[in-house]
Write a protein that binds this DNA or RNA. Structure first.
Length: 478
RNA sequence: GGCGCGUUGGUCAAGUGGUUAAGACUCCGCCCUUUCACGGCGGCAUCACGGGUUCGAACCCCGUACGCGUCACCA
């Protein structure tokens, strides 16, 4: 029996687009809640007004909705512990800052930005805490004089330890910790403060976040301790990397979730792959839909080391998800891509989709794969030479001649009739099926690689166009 | 630089003192086959390094190297 229900939160700041690492954090956060019947909350951390990016908020909502990571509480759906946007909670932070000052866990700092910040960029220094030693009279005098101030955390002496689900027990000397700013001079809280207040007030039991917060977690626990609160369970995740030394980033041109979708990846595939970046399931199965992930997810499988994003493996997942689609669903998805290069209004796009379906890894590959249906490419006759099919230019001449006259005399033009006709012809010529089919396909498509074989291609092209192309091929061969 | 963290094949990774060191992706070969793809079978390739502890270490300890993070009135 769990004493408290699990409550997790995804707390992005609207400062950019939804990156793969963000998505993964959201996913894990969602999975932890859902797998244990808990509540998944969305909170917007917008305390840095200068970093707001237009459209970022929309991207967050859209991505979560597309992925099915539905939140139970949040700015849009409300909930019992709102508001869920930090700038709307400003009064709350002020109130708790006062409380913390009274408790001795914080103090007002009247030093200007320049006095407190390291002036020399080389020198790594921390705030010397001088305002923490001001007497009550001195503080009152500053206050009376209207001196602007920030609120800083008072770090006690000693050592602080905390447990992380992924990294285990981490202990640091408090000397390493700075008296960080909790309330900025604009009155808004820093992440360090808002996060602790909100997580506590919102009853968050499990905090999932990037490992870059590992170093500052002791400060948060000191804050919890000063308030007499119980810290949450921490789950720090290592970053998703673009290569061995760089995190995925927009700056390097790494794709965001929406970029991947625009490239022709399926949401389900992206989600499945992202889940596996830094987490491994107990068994050997790797393919999981979101509901399946809810069933099998276990924080024990989260790994400590960073994971490099591998587009090849994503492609693999994507092609598997595409193949699993119904023919109808695939046709609907593929049609716009087919239409990028196949404009002929009369052509049977369903037949094309059918050929494509098992041969398509990413939707963006489609236009290039089917362009020959619209126009016969200007191909090299070297294509007619294929060792496996036992063809060369001479053989191809014979095959094309025979195929042309056989197809010319065909009354009915459909898959079966063409099939029977060509098979009979191959038998009559005493050649392997491939020896006849190969040159026909090359002449019909003008490409070395095509989705579907000679018969499928010819059926879609239709009688006149097929015969025209076969004659063009025959002519090219001289 | 201080502190923290990390390091199993090219990539994701399983593994918690005794294993032929799983599996997946990629790549290669073969089979299937009307090209390609799918599918099937097989293969290449890994415990960063150096010391310990131990009968025995990928697993425990120490150190080294390399990498990442952090040291903001950013989150």
């Amino acid at each position: 029996m769990t004493p408290t229900t699990i409550r997790t939160r995804f707390a992005p700041s609207p400062t950019g687009y939804m990156h793969v690492g963000n998505l993964r954090t959201a996913l894990y956060t969602y999975l932890i809640a859902r797998s244990q019947g808990g509540t998944f909350i969305l909170r917007i951390e917008d305390t840095d007004q200068s970093r707001q990016v237009e459209g970022a908020l929309e991207a967050i909502y859209q991505t979560l909705a597309d992925c099915g990571l539905n939140h139970d509480e949040g700015p849009d759906v409300g909930g019992p512990v709102g508001p869920y946007v930090q700038t709307e909670r400003q009064a709350l932070y002020g109130e708790y800052a006062e409380k913390l000052i009274a408790l001795g866990g914080a103090y007002r700092c009247f030093c200007g930005k320049d006095d407190a910040a390291p002036s020399d960029e080389k020198a790594i220094s921390k705030y010397d805490g001088r305002c923490g030693r001001l007497s009550a009279e001195e503080i009152q005098a500053k206050l009376d004089a209207g001196t602007p101030y920030v609120v800083r955390q008072r770090i006690p002496a000693g050592r602080t330890a905390f447990d992380d689900v992924v990294f285990g027990c981490i202990e640091v000397d408090n000397d390493e910790l700075d008296d960080g700013v909790l309330i900025k001079s604009d009155g808004l809280p820093t992440y360090n403060f808002a996060n602790v207040i909100d997580d506590h007030l919102m009853g968050i039991t499990h905090v999932v976040r990037g490992s870059e917060y590992l170093s500052s977690t002791p400060k948060y626990n000191l804050l919890y301790a000063a308030f007499g609160w119980t810290p949450p369970i921490y789950i720090h995740c290592s970053p998703v990397m673009r290569d061995a030394t760089h995190k995925m980033s927009k700056r390097h041109g790494d794709p965001s979730y929406e970029d991947l979708i625009a490239m022709g990846y399926l949401t389900e595939a992206v989600l499945n792959y992202v889940a596996l970046l830094g987490w491994s399931p107990a068994g050997e199965e790797e393919m999981f839909t979101l509901p399946e992930l809810v069933k099998v997810f276990d924080v024990k499988g989260i790994s400590k080391s960073p994971a490099i994003f591998d587009m090849d493996k994503l492609r693999h997942f994507n092609s598997a998800y595409i193949r699993a689609l119904t023919p109808e669903a695939f046709h609907t998805l593929a049609l716009p891509y087919i239409r990028q290069t196949v404009t002929n209004a009369d052509i049977d796009t369903r037949a094309i989709a059918e050929l494509l379906h098992q041969r398509c890894e990413v939707l963006n590959d489609i236009p290039e794969k089917v362009d020959f249906f619209d126009a016969l490419p200007d191909y090299d006759i070297a294509l007619y030479t294929n060792k496996k099919s036992k063809t060369d230019e001479t053989v191809s001449r014979t095959m094309l001649d025979a195929a042309i006259s056989a197809l010319e005399s065909l009354d009915e033009w459909n898959k079966d009739s063409i099939h029977d006709c060509l098979m009979a012809l191959a038998a009559e010529l005493e050649v392997k099926n491939a020896t006849l089919m190969y040159p026909v396909r090359i002449a019909a498509a003008g490409k070395a690689v095509t989705p579907g074989g000679a018969i499928e291609v010819c059926v879609i092209l239709g009688r006149d166009e097929t015969l025209r192309r076969l004659r063009v091929g025959r002519e090219k061969l001289g």
